[in-house]
Simulated scan of single mutants.
Amino acid sequence: MILRTRLVVAFFAGALLLTGCGEQSTREGATDEVSLTVSGGVAGVRRGIEVGSAGDVFLTDREGSREQADDLTPAEKKRFNSLLDAVESGGLPSDSVAEKARDVFEYRLQYDGQTLVTDGMTDLGPASDLIAHLKSCMHARQ
């Protein structure tokens, strides 16, 4: 009887673990979150924005404090989703930072398990457009 109980418990534990392994998507092909961290410059700026799949927004300040901000507006969310679709179809390009650049901003875009680091000096197509949109959304909430 004890062995049978242990087998049943093991079976249900395994089933629970397997159900947690399935891929979840709240938007067609999207992951849960996109984040942009802006750092550098002469003043040592550091700030960031995270946008969830539902349009929820969190801002991070210089000290690393994270707080919820106003959700994306319908227009911002529509543009955001459009840019994500464009990035998904082309993928994130490789990092683009000038070796000898001094006192420039560094933009760290994280999406779909990938990270792109750029100084913004080179046009990276949809990735640059997504960074610009996230910066605009961040500035609108500061």
Rank of each mutant, 00 (worst) to 15 (best):
V34N: 04
P74S: 04
E67P: 00
E23M: 08
F105T: 14
D103R: 00
R108D: 14
L109R: 01
R79K: 06
R62I: 14
V34H: 01
D95C: 05
F80M: 07
A30T: 11
E50T: 08
D71T: 08
S89Y: 09
S53C: 03
S82F: 03
A54I: 01
S89M: 13
K100N: 15
P93W: 01
G29T: 13
D70K: 01
G48E: 14
S65W: 04
Q24F: 11
T26H: 12
V87E: 09
V87M: 08
G44F: 06
Q68P: 03
V38C: 03
D32I: 01
V45K: 04
D95M: 06
R47L: 11
L109H: 02
L83K: 00
D85Y: 02
I49G: 04
D71H: 06
E23G: 09
R108C: 07
R102D: 15
I49C: 02
S89H: 09
E76S: 01
R46W: 08
G90N: 11
R66I: 14
D70A: 12
D85A: 03
T73Y: 07
D103C: 04
G44E: 10
E50M: 03
V57L: 04
N81L: 10
S53L: 03
S89Q: 13
V97H: 06
S96F: 11
K78T: 15
E63F: 05
L36W: 06
V34W: 02
P74H: 04
